[in-house]
C-alpha cells in the first residue's frame, strides 16, 4: 500500500473505531494487557452511546481499580474497601432518576464487601454492579482472593490454595443470581473481540434495566491479572480460558426482573 493510499483511507470520515470520548486522555495506571482497561472502555462507550454522561455517577472500589475515577469522565465517588454498593444504594435512593454503577474487584466485592453486595442485590437496588474477577488481589501484590482457584499459587498461598487451610473458591455470582432483587446476572469476559462485544451488550442491557427499574443488574467480568499470575498478557488470556472459565463458566445466570413483591405476601396471610 502506498502512502497515498493510506492517506486516502485515514480520513476522519473513514474512522470505524476510536477511543471513547468519555475516556479521559490520561494514561491508565494498569499493567499492560490488564482487563480493567477494556472493561473501563466498555462502560465509557455504553454511557456515551446512551447519552447519559451527566446523569451518571460511578462508585470506585479499593484495589487496582481504585483510580477508575481518573479515566471515565463522569462524576465519581471513591468508596471504602468493599462498601461501593452501600454508597450506590444511598445515591440511587436519593437520586432515583440518575444512573448509578459500582465497579469492584473480587477482593473488594466477594471478601470484605460480601455483606454490602449481597444486601444491595437482595434489596433490589436499581443499580449496575460491575464485578471484575481475576481471582487474585492485584493492588496489594497478588495475594489469595476469595475466588482464587484451588491449587492456584499466590503471594499468600505460595504452595497453592489449599481447601483445608484456605477454604473453597467462592462463586459469588451464583449466590447473587439467587437473590430476588436481581434482574440480570451474567458472567462475561473481555479477552477476544467477540467476548468484548458480548460484555458491552451486557453492560448496555444493565444500564437499560436500571432505566426501566427492573432491579439490580450484576455483571461479572472474568479477567486476567498477568502481573499477579506472573505470565504475559497473551498467556494470561489462555490460562483464563483453560482454567478460570471451567470453574466460572460464562453466560447469563439470570435474565428477568426482580421478584414480584406480591408473591411474598402469601407467607403471612
Amino acid at each position: 500500500m502506498t502512502d497515498q493510499e493510506l492517506k486516502e483511507i485515514m480520513k476522519p470520515e473513514n474512522i470505524v473505531y476510536k477511543k471513547s470520548g468519555l475516556l479521559r486522555d490520561n494514561i491508565m495506571h494498569y499493567c499492560p494487557g490488564c482487563s480493567h482497561g477494556v472493561t473501563h472502555k466498555l462502560i465509557a462507550e455504553v454511557i456515551e452511546e446512551l447519552g447519559i454522561k451527566e446523569q451518571t455517577i460511578g462508585i470506585s472500589p479499593v484495589g487496582c481499580s481504585v483510580f477508575a475515577y481518573n479515566y471515565i469522565d463522569v462524576d465519581w465517588q471513591e468508596a471504602a474497601h468493599g462498601r461501593a454498593p452501600a454508597l450506590a444504594t444511598a445515591v440511587k435512593r436519593l437520586l432515583p432518576d440518575k444512573y448509578v454503577f459500582t465497579y469492584q474487584g473480587d477482593g473488594d466485592l466477594a471478601s470484605i464487601g460480601a455483606a454490602e453486595i449481597l444486601h444491595a442485590c437482595n434489596r433490589g437496588e436499581n443499580i449496575v454492579c460491575i464485578f471484575v474477577n481475576n481471582a487474585i488481589y492485584g493492588m496489594t501484590g497478588g495475594q489469595m482472593a476469595p475466588t482464587t482457584l484451588v491449587g492456584m499459587k499466590t503471594a499468600t498461598t505460595p504452595y497453592g490454595r489449599n481447601v483445608d487451610r484456605n477454604g473453597y473458591p467462592m462463586k459469588i455470582t451464583e449466590l447473587i443470581a439467587q437473590l430476588p432483587g436481581t434482574c440480570y446476572v451474567t458472567r462475561q469476559s473481555v479477552e477476544t473481540p467477540a467476548a468484548v462485544r458480548k460484555t458491552k451488550q451486557a453492560i448496555k442491557k444493565a444500564f437499560l434495566n436500571q432505566k426501566e427499574k427492573k432491579g439490580t443488574s450484576f455483571i461479572e467480568v472474568v479477567s486476567t491479572c498477568n502481573s499477579g499470575w506472573k505470565i504475559d498478557p497473551i498467556k494470561a488470556n489462555k490460562w483464563m480460558q483453560d482454567h478460570l472459565f471451567k470453574f466460572y463458566p460464562l453466560g447469563d445466570l439470570k435474565d428477568s426482573v426482580k421478584d414480584d413483591p406480591e408473591s411474598y405476601k402469601q407467607y403471612i396471610e
Binding site: 468508596a79 452501600a86 444504594t89 444511598a90 444486601h119
Partner: peptide, 8 residues
Amino acid sequence: ASINMVYG
C-alpha cells in the same frame, strides 16, 4: 453499611 450510605 449505614455510615457508607451516609458517605454516598
